[in-house]
């Protein structure tokens, strides 16, 4: 039996050795040939490299997510002013933003003028919006939002009061958590107070709201209280009347004069004693 087995084995070894060729009868190589001739290689390699493929897919998903996040991340452009400084900024659609002192405005450069024109601001700013009915222009402050198509207006945001003054065109003014809304037209102003959570609309034109831009303060039969308010606002100081003259009115125009000169003129004209006490 053993002998027979050895003889048989010797025969098989001889048989195999006789046909042996280096690199022949390679099952993997043969399968690749078979598969490629039948266009099934791709399916097979996908299975074989399943983990590789899965890893690639995961990586792509990761990259895709990253790109999406990256693409959707706002690209803020912010402009700020120091107290007393003013700046004129033209937005990509050539809308003018005139920033008063100690204010900022910002917009997302990636989205601005794509579907909407949205800016955010704090402080005081005058807007002269280029008309584009397809892309409404909106300004958000911490408590309010102004939406327009193409007008010029000013927003003055103070800690408890936000005021909008419309110079030309039509403005939609929304304020508070309740989204209270008013439509304002040229010459109208609206104030939102975060204390009583109400919008108050004033129909009379207040030219001095833009004095910081024009450099001109105009008074026409203006009550003294209002004169004091406008001067305080323009020169950013506290002004008090140390005389007791109620009910006097002022008609005058000042072109960016020093405060001391104005106070002297007003005091002499109205016989009052206006004193600038301190900087705000």
């Amino acid at each position: 039996m053993d002998n027979e087995y050895d003889k048989d084995l010797e025969q098989r070894i001889r048989f195999v050795a006789r046909h042996y060729r280096e690199g022949s009868l390679d099952a993997d190589k043969a399968w690749r040939k078979f598969a490629s001739e039948r266009a099934i290689s791709r399916k097979v390699s996908l299975r074989r490299y399943w983990f590789g493929a899965a890893a690639v897919v995961l990586m792509l998903v990761g990259l895709g997510t990253w790109f999406t996040v990256e693409r959707n991340a706002p690209d803020w452009v912010a402009i700020t002013t120091a107290p007393g400084q003013t700046k004129d900024i033209y937005l990509p659609d050539s809308t003018l933003v005139a920033l008063a002192g100690d204010s900022w405005v910002r917009y997302d450069a990636k989205r601005y003028d794509k579907e909407r024109r949205a800016v955010e601001m704090n402080g005081k700013a005058f807007f002269q919006v280029t008309r584009n009915e397809a892309r409404p222009f909106s300004v958000r402050t911490s408590q309010t939002e102004v939406t327009v198509l193409g007008t010029s207006f000013q927003i003055d945001e103070k800690p408890t009061v936000t005021e909008v003054n419309v110079v030309t065109g039509k403005v939609s003014f929304t304020a508070g958590v309740e989204k209270e809304n008013v439509i304002l037209t040229a010459g109208m102003s609206a104030r939102y107070s975060s204390e009583n959570k109400e919008i108050t609309v004033t129909e009379e034109d207040d030219v001095n709201k833009l004095a910081w831009r024009t450099g001109q303060l105009r008074f026409k039969e203006t009550p003294l209280d209002k004169v004091i308010e406008d001067l305080s606002d323009y020169y950013q100081v506290e002004i008090t009347n140390q005389a007791k003259n109620e009910g006097v009115k002022l008609t005058a125009t000042f072109n960016d004069l020093p405060l001391e000169d104005i106070l002297q003129v007003v005091n002499q004209t109205l016989d009052v004693r206006l004193v600038s006490t301190s900087k705000k």
């Binding site: 195999v16 046909h19 009868l25 099952a27 993997d28 043969a30 399968w31 078979f34 598969a35 099934i40 399916k43 097979v44 299975r47």
Partner: peptide, 18 residues
């Protein structure tokens, strides 16, 4: 399946050649 076929192919290929 193709996968099963591939398995059969690879395990039977060399013996069949011999």
């Amino acid at each position: 399946t193709t996968q099963e076929f591939e398995h059969h192919f690879k395990s039977l290929y060399k013996p069949l050649c011999l």
